[in-house]
Computed example of a mutant assay.
Amino acid sequence: MAFDIAALGRWVALFRDRVSDEQERLTALDSAIGDADHGANMARGTAAAVAKLESATPTTVGEFGKAVGMALVSTVGGASGPLYGTFFLRFGASGGDGAELDGPALAAALRAGLEGVVSRGKAEPGDKTMIDAMTPAVDAFEAGASDLVSAARSAARAARAGSDATEPLVARKGRASYLGERSAGHLDPGSVSTALLFEALAAAAEEVSA
């Protein structure tokens, strides 16, 4: 079993749908510790990414990652655009000229995306950022990559647990860090949208296997 270009596109479409459904919640979370624009920004960016894929269907994983990454960079405001954009650009670069990704190759692409986000944002686990959801998700996917569907489900659960664990943390990166101790008691909105990203991946994997 593998993710072809259509399945990768479906992943992004499902991510868009989840972000759209959760837009108001993402905005409410961001209003507590940020600029109150994460929901709107992510909804706009994911819609633009899907539109880009529909207007010029990529033929390789590299083209897919570039299309999605550049759409997010150019349409999502704040730090989230460059971070999510870097994730998909690095993801695509890992897949290169291939037209599909099996479990291990998908794991490698996810790892490359994570490393790109870490390099760009300079955040570590525990800083109360999207890294708190993305790191355990990628770790979980890698651990079970031989079974793509199971790995994607595990990654989704790990991402959600990682996001939930940001609530008591004091932010050390990003705008929320300006609040100091007052940032505790709130979920990091970037970690919540990251959980949606991996839940969409799991849903796409289930569709592929059906």
Results as ranks from 00 to 15, higher is better:
110 L>D: 05
177 S>K: 05
164 D>M: 13
29 L>E: 05
159 A>W: 09
79 A>G: 10
3 F>T: 01
154 S>E: 15
147 D>Q: 01
145 A>Y: 03
170 V>S: 10
207 E>T: 10
172 R>D: 01
168 P>R: 01
197 L>V: 14
2 A>K: 14
10 R>P: 03
56 A>W: 05
191 S>F: 11
84 Y>Q: 10
174 G>T: 01
187 L>T: 11
40 A>R: 15
11 W>T: 05
34 G>P: 13
166 T>G: 04
81 G>L: 07
188 D>A: 07
28 A>Y: 01
36 A>F: 04
188 D>F: 03
204 A>G: 08
117 V>K: 03
154 S>G: 15
57 T>L: 13
9 G>S: 00
56 A>M: 12
186 H>R: 00
88 F>G: 03
6 A>F: 14
155 A>C: 10
205 A>G: 11
25 R>T: 13
55 S>L: 14
32 A>G: 12
192 V>F: 13
17 D>W: 02
183 S>M: 04
68 V>N: 04
96 G>F: 04
169 L>A: 00
147 D>C: 03
174 G>P: 10
187 L>R: 13
14 L>E: 02
188 D>G: 02
195 A>W: 09
24 E>A: 15
111 R>Q: 14
72 L>I: 06
2 A>C: 12
188 D>N: 01
182 R>Y: 07
137 A>G: 08
170 V>W: 11
193 S>D: 11
59 T>S: 13
181 E>K: 13
186 H>W: 02
41 N>Y: 08
